[in-house]
Nucleic acid binder design. Structure first.
Lengths: 203, 203
DNA sequence: CGCCGCACATGACAAATGTCAGGAGCGGAA
DNA sequence: TTCCGCTCCTGACATTTGTCATGTGCGGCG
């Protein structure tokens, strides 16, 4: 019997180590590599060519979805899945379009995770039902491409002038986009608009 | 030999379960209870009277520090420690003044955590060196009580009128506090000021 | 007691922001 | 081809902020 070769990437040593130990107890799984950052995950994947890569969404260097995208190009035979602590709807959509085959919150048990890894390895997809429901109820972004882009530059209360410069648009245009985006989101001002859009993964 | 009785509280089942398994391997530690939320942690502590409570900082219901405060009152013999993913300096200060004896990031290994649990149980304190350095370099809050209070109401881009109402102050006064607070924090506007203050745990 | 810092306020001005109207180019769908 | 929506712009206006000057009352401290 040949075991499923797993790559584990998570910056929290506590979790990664514990998880590696628990998954290793399953006799059909084998943790062949561990990584604590996005770039390291890529390097380990190249070196060990795992069957399944289990990636944390939040990692220093490059987030899980970014790593998954690159892996898909470099190692098409390697299935990828994402685990995350507090999953926002938009991340799920982004992950799926990056070719990720599994998306689970960290609230599942290790045993359950092992099952999902097997299932993903067998070619199936798995998305946590609750996250899926969130994603569906959040619906599609009502924002146009430019509105979303401008909102993205409007983080941490940057002044309009700065946003305009970064987006290479005139200040008036930026104001218009910000205004219409806020209207679509039902927000009073751009700051709450940014927050809402982020929560729903629309930026 | 009597083993150290440990309570584990973390809303992420993946971590809690894995951790429980790994800590259980240490022959002088015994995980006697697990909880997935703040209130549940309190209830389990009352029922099982552990020697050491290992609490996640971010939990639904009540955060780790809140739980620690209540535990200190109800079960003085129970030592408390906090584990956290991304620790902000202010949390550390808050935790220490709540009587927490250990403060560690989730980037440590399970073995290391076990050592720290033992040390805390023996009556020592332990604070992660890196977090401690952050806390020290962040220094004390330069904000007056009112400035901090007003900043606290200024979350998610609320308009000044709303802040004034919530703080029962005049709008002019609110603007003044916001302005002076932003100046002290070196921020351009109140939104970045709020973010900075939050990062440093000054709100 | 007199000084100083803090809490709280007012009023006024400048700058940033939100809102509205309107106009030009451009690509896709009817 | 005509129409419509998206992108981008300009200009003007009302509102919201940030900033400053200035004043009062209070409590602590030398």
């Amino acid at each position: 019997m040949t075991r499923v070769r797993v790559l584990l990437a998570d910056d929290e040593h506590l979790i990664r180590g514990a998880l590696a130990a628990l998954l290793g107890l399953e006799d059909d799984l084998e943790v062949v590599a561990e990584a604590a950052s996005g770039p390291e995950a890529l390097a380990m994947a190249r070196a060990h060519r795992p069957d399944v890569a289990v990636l944390d969404l939040e990692m220093p260097g490059a987030d899980g979805v970014t790593v998954a995208t690159k892996l898909r190009a470099e190692l098409p035979s390697c299935r990828t899945m994402i685990v995350t602590s507090h999953g926002r709807p938009g991340h799920l959509k982004r992950a799926l379009s990056a070719g990720v085959r599994g998306f689970v919150p960290k609230t599942v048990s290790a045993r359950r995770l092992a099952e999902i890894i097997r299932s993903v390895h067998a070619g199936n997809r798995y998305v946590d039902p609750e996250l899926a429901a969130d994603a569906i109820s959040a619906g599609d972004s009502p924002l146009t491409v430019r509105e979303a882009e401008v909102l993205g530059f409007a983080t941490d209360g940057a002044p309009v002038a700065e946003i305009a410069e970064r987006a290479a648009l005139s200040q008036g245009t930026v104001r218009n986009y910000l205004s219409s985006a806020a209207a679509k989101l039902g927000a009073e001002n751009r700051h709450t608009a940014v927050r809402l859009a982020r929560e729903r993964g629309w930026v």
